[in-house]
């Protein structure tokens, strides 16, 4: 138990560092899709929601678990779909863009 806890803390801290490195290189033009994509990624909570809902005993646990699955699904599906819609709109200039008048 104790060893697990420490290992998980390691994973958490290292992932934080990776996150800071990754995100700080995203240009501000893409900050909205970045936010909505990471928003979809924290929908990974659906994994947790499924874990508790599918293994639930008794009505209280089932109700809480089912509600969690519902909210998390909204988060995941809505998040990825909306990010795709945003990114679909980002287009380059016809014929190369930026360099053309410089």
């Amino acid at each position: 138990m104790q060893a697990n806890w420490v290992l998980e803390a390691y994973i958490f801290v290292l992932a934080l560092f990776v996150g800071f490195q990754l995100i700080s290189k995203v240009p501000s033009v893409l900050h909205t899709p970045l936010m909505s994509a990471t928003n979809a990624i924290h929908g990974i909570i659906l994994v947790g929601a499924l874990t508790v809902a599918l293994a639930a005993h008794g009505p209280l646990e089932t109700a809480l678990g089912t509600a969690a699955v519902f909210l998390a699904t909204l988060n995941v599906v809505g998040g990825f779909v909306v990010t795709d819609r945003i990114l679909e709109m980002f287009r380059r200039s016809p014929g190369g863009g930026r360099k053309e008048h410089e």
Partner: peptide, 14 residues
């Protein structure tokens, strides 16, 4: 659950 920890940390950092 490790995947929750990694994904959560990424989003937290972002």
């Amino acid at each position: 659950n490790n995947v929750l920890i990694v994904a959560g940390a990424l989003v937290g950092a972002s």
